[in-house]
Design a protein around this nucleic acid. Structure first.
Lengths: 142, 142
DNA sequence: CTCTTGATGCAACTGCGTTGCATTTGCGGC
DNA sequence: GCCGCAAATGCAACGCAGTTGCATCAAGAG
């Protein structure tokens, strides 16, 4: 299901409305091949002629994060749509291309198990984790 | 070899001098059981009666990072001494307390192996990774 | 002790993100 | 289409982390 549709539905369900700026933001996030930070989103929107305040971008991104439709990429404030069926609080495994910024999610049973082990070994009460691999995607390798 | 000694030697080698504040900072970092951010270091020093400006802490931490004697813990600005023979660019596993922000590093063989597996499975050319567990530390649990 | 220059303290500044509040606008009801 | 209410927005002010410029202090070599 398309991100913008899903997001619109979720926002409406909680009593939200669709504004010009919000729609543009959702579409931008959906179209963007890589995670963007609020400031970058704002810049892109302005560039596209959408008159919107940076504050609104922050607020919208915050709302979408809270709804579990976006999640932050580790080590930055950039966000991207959660993958289908992804549980936002727990699933944060992505490979991010250091050249073009495109991201792909992955899952690994061995990794889950190893993380479970670490979880049990530490004295912290673990609530979640963030994992990101960095490298070059196929097209950027050439 | 003790961190403070190593640091003093490295600083002198590059024409640096030992001041009261700097010595106290090195000793604090050495003694601290967990990574501390510049602001925390500053606060601790003041608490211990060392009159030093926050700016100086920042500058000293920056110098030590540049000398490769400290490294940052992932997801925070907290620093800790590099372990003997450690390559600072690669150590990126930490548990971060979501309440107080304190961080502790960890290593897990199983995790390393699982990551190696993922590395080989993906079509990206992996150059590194970031991993961070989030949770509550012992003292924040109460 | 004197002198050089590295280190420091202070204040101003930058950048990111947040908050308060008045205004605008989506949209449900008529 | 029009009205009215609450959501969303824009603007300005603010808070916090970290940086920079510059005058002053002091480590340590001679």
């Amino acid at each position: 299901m398309k991100f913008s549709r899903k997001a619109e539905a979720a926002l409406r369900r909680r009593g939200g409305r669709m504004t010009r700026a919000r729609r543009a933001l959702l579409e931008l996030i959906e179209k963007s091949p890589r995670p963007l930070a609020p400031r970058q989103l704002h810049r892109e929107l302005r560039r596209a002629g959408v008159r919107v305040d940076l504050v609104s971008v922050y607020r919208n991104v915050a709302a979408l994060l809270e709804l579990g439709l976006l999640h932050r990429v580790l080590g930055s404030t950039a966000v991207r749509p959660c993958a289908e069926g992804e549980r936002p609080a727990r699933c944060h495994h992505a490979v991010v291309c250091t050249a073009c910024g495109s991201a792909r999610e992955f899952h690994s049973l061995a990794l889950e198990r190893a993380l479970g082990e670490v979880r049990r070994a530490t004295r912290y009460r673990i609530s979640g984790h963030l994992l990101e691999l960095r490298g070059l995607c196929e097209s950027c390798r050439s």
